[in-house]
Amino acid sequence: MHSSLHGASNSGSSQSSETAQQVSAVPLREHNGGLMTAVKATLVRDLTLLLRRRGEVLNPLVFFALVITLFPIAISPDPELLAVIAPGLLWVAALLAALLSLDSLFRSDYDDGSLEQLLLAPQPLAALSLAKVAVHWLLTGLPLALMAPILGIMLALPAGSYAVLALSLALGTASLSLIGAIGAALTVGLARGGVLLSLLVLPLYIPVLIFGAGAVQAAIFGEGVSAHLAILGALLAASLMLAPWAIAASLRISING
């Protein structure tokens, strides 16, 4: 049952040592860093790609607005009721919108073979994947955070909490992108990774959701928001330190199929 090797056969000449000595060998290169060049080029490349397909950038934003529209229709148009649940609604809808675009983070690279090239670059994979995640946040999380106050108006979000809403979303979605990228990296090799991806990352999103929505609520009640924002910042710092390694390890697993 074991198929074994039928001996490495040598056709043509014997070991061509004299040939190798005649010609000047292709010089072996020393690895000469250039990490910043590689990271910058990856940032530029992903930004260019996404900006050329604007639909992919706009989809999460439209989804966000659409989901927010569903709630008054499903629950009640009463501004007082909406004001109470607005922080939670805005945060949950933004979180789902950010999740929506996550599946495509590594998928096209996987399909066209550039992911394996990324893995074979003589650069730390964690740094290169961090560049990709940064682009995801820049074109998903940040626009969502900027758009949220407008939807806040529509949900009668009390005044004084708008800046905190945008800030908490900007901070929080950065963590979401980092954590979500681990899930995206784990499922990129799977044919139907999308649904599984949500199952993997949503439980991990809960702390960010608690402190993000909590910050907005605290702002509404006039309590200090600095504690919430500080914890969101701490979560982001922890994700920044740990997630890139997990993403890199997951990509190496996924490339094996």
Partner: peptide, 20 residues
């Protein structure tokens, strides 16, 4: 990998749920 990511998150989740 997922189990390790999860185990790092469990205390964070627990702490934040208690806070909530």
């Amino acid at each position: 990998v997922l189990a390790m990511v999860g185990v790092i998150n469990i205390p964070i989740i627990k702490y934040s749920v208690d806070w909530w």
